[in-house]
Design a protein around this nucleic acid. Structure first.
Lengths: 174, 174
DNA sequence: ATGCTTATTTGCAAATAATGCGAACTACAT
DNA sequence: ATGTAGTTCGCATTATTTGCAAATAAGCAT
C-alpha cells in the first residue's frame, strides 16, 4: 500500500477526510509484514490511541481494501488477515506459530492443471503449509524472517506428499 | 472417502456405533462433489430424516475428518466446506456461482518459489479463482458443468497476469 | 426378547468474527 | 466561527461453530 502521506492525498481526492484514527491505521499498516487481523491491528492501535473503536478499524480496513491498498486473506478459517502488499504474491503459513509470510512464485504459468471444462482462470492463489525450521543460531523463537531478506529460491517439494492429518476444527491454541 | 459399507466396518472396529444419522450422512457425502457446508448437508439430510440435528451433522463431519475420510476446506471465509475426496488435489472456485471444483495439478514440484529461509514445505494448496465460461448454447444461466466430465488438461495463464517485480514502488514510498 | 452400559444425539448457551444502524462527533471548506 | 457531510463509536444482530449436560438408543450379554 502507499505511504501514509500518499494515502492522505488519495483520500482527500476522493472527498474522504483525514482523521487521527485513519492516520494511525495507515502508519500501522504501512510496511507491516505481520499480516494482522482486524483484532490484532486494533490492539496495536489501542496502545497509541486508547479508545479507538474496533468498529473503526474494521471500517478503515474495508475502505483500504476497496481502494486496492491492501489485500484480504482468508487463511485457516479464522479471522481475515490483511496484507499491505498488493503485488502478485502468495503465502507460506507456519503450522506451528501461525505466522504468515509473503512468497513470490516465478512460474505459475507453467502449472499443468486439469481444470473443469470452460473454466477461465482469473487468478491463482497458492499457500505453502509447513514450518520454519528452527535452526539453533539466535533466540530461534524470535528470529524474524523478512521476506525481503535472503529468501531462497527453491523448487517446491513437500516432505511427504501424503495426506496430512487434519485438525478437526479451527483455532484452539490454548 | 470410503463407501458407507466400508465406513461402517471401520467405525465398528473403532468401537463407534452405527446410527441412522451416521448412515445417512455417509451416504450423502459419498461421492458428493458439491463440497457442501455443514448447513447445506444438514438441509439435505433433513429432507430424508426430518428432525436430525445440525449438531449431529457437525459432529459427524468432525469425526470423519479426524478419521481422514474427508477434507476441510476454508475457501472464502464463509462456512467450511467438506470434501470426500482426500486425494492430493486442489480447487477451482467460480466467482459467479461460488461453485467449487476439484482440480488435479501435475507438476507442483516444479514451482519455483522464494520461500522464507528455513521454511519446510509440508503441503501446498492451490486455488484457481475464475469463472465457468457460459457458452451461449442453452439457457446459459442454468448450464451445469460437472467436474467428472472432460476435464481439460491445460497450462494456467490468468487473463491479465502482469508480472510485477517484487515490491514495485508506486509513487514515493516513505 | 430383556436389560445394561455407554456411545450418540440433541437442544441450548456461548464464543468468535464481522456487519448494520443510528446518534454523537468532527474535519474542513467557506 | 459556522455549517454540513463524512466519521467514529457502541450496541444489536447475523453467521459459524463449539461446549455441555440431559435424554436416547446401539449393540453386547443373558
Amino acid at each position: 500500500m502507499h505511504s501514509p502521506e500518499v494515502l492522505a492525498t488519495k483520500y482527500k481526492e476522493q472527498g474522504r477526510r483525514i482523521t487521527p484514527q485513519r492516520k494511525l491505521l495507515f502508519t500501522l499498516m504501512h510496511n507491516n509484514e505481520s499480516h494482522p487481523t482486524a483484532e490484532g491491528l486494533f490492539e496495536e492501535a489501542s496502545k497509541r490511541m486508547p479508545g479507538i473503536s474496533l468498529r473503526t478499524v474494521y471500517q478503515t480496513l474495508e475502505e483500504l481494501s476497496e481502494m486496492g491498498e491492501i489485500q484480504l486473506m482468508h487463511c485457516d478459517g479464522g479471522a481475515v488477515r490483511f496484507d499491505p502488499n498488493v503485488d502478485e504474491h502468495h503465502h507460506a503459513v507456519c503450522a506451528e506459530t501461525g505466522e504468515l509470510f509473503d512468497v513470490y512464485v516465478d512460474n505459475i504459468d507453467s502449472l499443468r492443471a486439469q481444470l473443469p471444462d470452460g473454466f477461465e482462470v482469473q487468478n491463482v492463489s497458492i499457500v505453502f503449509h509447513g514450518r520454519v525450521a528452527k535452526s539453533a543460531p539466535r533466540t530461534a523463537r524470535s528470529a524474524r524472517i523478512t521476506t525481503k531478506s535472503p529468501a531462497r529460491q527453491q523448487t517446491v517439494r513437500a516432505k511427504s506428499a501424503k495426506r496430512t492429518p487434519r485438525r478437526a476444527s479451527r483455532g484452539s491454541n490454548t
